[in-house]
Design a binder for these strands. Structure first.
Lengths: 100, 100
DNA sequence: TTGGTATATCGGGAAAAGTCGATATATCTT
DNA sequence: AAGATATATCGACTTTTCCCGATATACCAA
């Protein structure tokens, strides 16, 4: 758990927004055909549309969030789904309370 | 409480380090003549020495941390003392647990 | 009021992050 | 195998951050 890397990942408006959207997918995204929200999360395309940035930018943002540990990804067919890693958030909360 | 501003403030190795030092001042800094650790914190010069960066850089870093709310400052004579704002850390921990 | 010390601010060069379009890769369909 | 779709990666340009030296400001002491 690299604190610095996590804080860098969180230092961007759009990435913070994405994390919030993924907290309540059914509230922020239309139903998906090929996979369920709960199991694998949301695919890149849906997130990209909502973010209003280019595909390459959003793909990279998701990668940054994943490398930090805050998101997890699952590849299903031609789609990559991202979902929150709630354990990482809990751990971060504790780190701030006790270590930082 | 501007989350983005806080995370940006935390996105630097030296600034994270400073926060840790200020958590246990007596452990990381020599005794001060003009003020007590508990009441006002540590003066810029002490922090600068320990950080090994220039005075201007450290002064700016402390200002960034203060603007984010994580530090508070007190001016006493020609010295400015910085100390942690523990409430801000607690609030941040809660935000991560519940909002982000 | 002059000089000394502590801190803040300013201007700039280097490095990193933001963001894009183009292209590569992976997978599906036919 | 060929074309279509989804995602990842690359190269380039712009903006932000890092960090410095120089200078300004504030306060103190004589």
């Amino acid at each position: 758990m690299d604190q610095l890397e996590i804080f860098k990942a969180l230092s961007n408006k759009t990435r913070l927004q994405i994390l919030q959207w993924l907290k309540e997918p059914e509230k922020h995204f239309p139903a998906q055909e090929h996979a369920s929200f709960d199991e694998v999360g949301i695919c890149v395309g849906q997130i990209q549309q909502k973010a209003g940035l280019t595909q390459s930018t959003v793909s990279e943002y998701l990668s940054i969030l994943q490398k930090s540990g805050l998101l997890e990804s699952t590849r299903l067919g031609q789609w990559t789904y991202y979902r929150r890693n709630e354990e990482a958030f809990a751990a971060l909360s504790n780190i701030i309370k006790s270590e930082i």
